[in-house]
């Protein structure tokens, strides 16, 4: 109810002539600015450094974010777009909306380094198979063991047609098996309990105890260890390496607030932003933090090898690879 009166007050205020403060409009995905997300704290921190207002606009999940940009095109009111990931950045670049970030990328801490001059990372995480130690004592030690293992021990996957982790697993399979990916999907099929439309559905089924494994992130166990004080859910380290997801932001070239946008991107790699990432976005910070990560992050799987296609490869082959998956597991 309080929100209502706030909304009313906001309407009244909006009608009055606004103070001549600069406003930075940042498009992001909704969970970034939800009650548990890092959005509110980051906004407050950044507003301390500038005489400005940060306005979050969250058109939905990460996929919806890109779609909003496609629909709006040059008319977009975004100054900064935060929350695209490396499987869609090539498509996003093709929109011709983004300008050079102009920030010193040597400050970026992501596995494999960073050279993109358009998009700047703010966090990352390797994907991983998360398993329930109460149901599984010997988790697969490689993707190969997952694919060829006991079909009675099921895994819950996400659909690559509607979910980012779903696409991540598809790319992982492709990165490891190449031409053989289709055949290996067919091998894996009996082990798949179901393919949920999104991460939330898959993880919900997993924590209900429907299957001993789910496709998620190496950082997932950190949530359970920090918030629920339990070691029950762990990530399996895979010998072939882990596929990496990097979340990035970019500035809109035509934005009237380009200087402020660039300031925000610079701020993004500083502790004011980065301190919020680990325990609010449950990802690894891609920049400098001033408080140490919670101890449990030291217990997480540290992949020795990182697997990743370039954004251009993903853009050019995504549809074919999804077709391959469809044919192999239908």
């Amino acid at each position: 109810m309080k929100r209502f009166s706030l909304a009313l007050a906001a309407l009244v205020l909006a009608a009055a002539p606004a103070a001549a403060k600069e406003t930075l409009t940042v498009y992001t995905y909704d969970s970034f600015v939800s009650d548990w997300g890092p959005g509110a704290a980051i906004k407050a921190e950044f507003e301390k450094t500038c005489d400005c207002d940060v306005k979050w606009v969250a058109p939905g999940d990460g996929v919806a974010l890109l779609n909003r940009l496609k629909l709006e095109g040059k008319e977009t009111s975004a100054d900064v777009v935060l929350g695209l990931d490396t499987s869609v950045t090539a498509e996003a670049k093709d929109l011709g909306l983004f300008g050079a970030h102009g920030v010193d990328a040597s400050r970026v801490k992501v596995p494999g380094g960073w050279s993109d001059t358009t998009f700047l990372p703010y966090d990352y995480a390797h994907f991983a198979v998360v398993y329930d130690t109460e149901k599984m004592t010997t988790p697969p030690r490689s993707l190969d063991e997952l694919v060829t293992g006991d079909a009675a021990q099921k895994i819950i996957l996400e659909d690559p047609r509607s979910s980012t982790p779903g696409l991540g697993f598809l790319l992982w399979m492709k990165a490891v098996y190449g031409e053989q990916a289709g055949a290996m999907w067919a091998r894996l099929k009996p082990r798949i309990l179901t393919v949920a439309p999104g991460w939330s559905e898959a993880y919900g089924l997993f924590t209900k105890g429907e299957a001993p494994m789910v496709f998620s992130y190496v950082t997932s166990p950190a949530y359970h260890m920090v918030e629920e004080k339990t070691d029950r859910y762990q990530a399996a380290a895979f010998a072939e390496g882990h596929y990496l997801q990097v979340e990035v932001a970019g500035l809109v070239e035509a934005s009237p607030e380009k200087a402020l946008a660039r300031k925000f991107l610079t701020f993004m790699l500083t502790p004011g932003f980065q301190n919020e990432i680990a325990t609010k976005n449950w990802m690894m910070p891609a920049g400098e933090t001033s408080v140490p990560l919670p101890e449990v992050f030291g217990k997480l799987v540290q992949p020795e090898k990182t697997l990743m296609f370039t954004p251009e490869e993903v853009r050019d082959h995504r549809r074919d690879w999804i077709g391959e998956w469809l044919n192999a597991t239908r």
């Binding site: 047609r161 099929k189 179901t194 393919v195 949920a196 439309p197 559905e201 239908r330």
Partner: peptide, 17 residues
């Protein structure tokens, strides 16, 4: 959501999906 979550795999794909 029902069809995808419980469908078991891409064989369970409706027009809506």
């Amino acid at each position: 959501v029902t069809v995808l979550t419980l469908g078991g795999g891409p064989a369970a794909t409706t027009l809506e999906v």
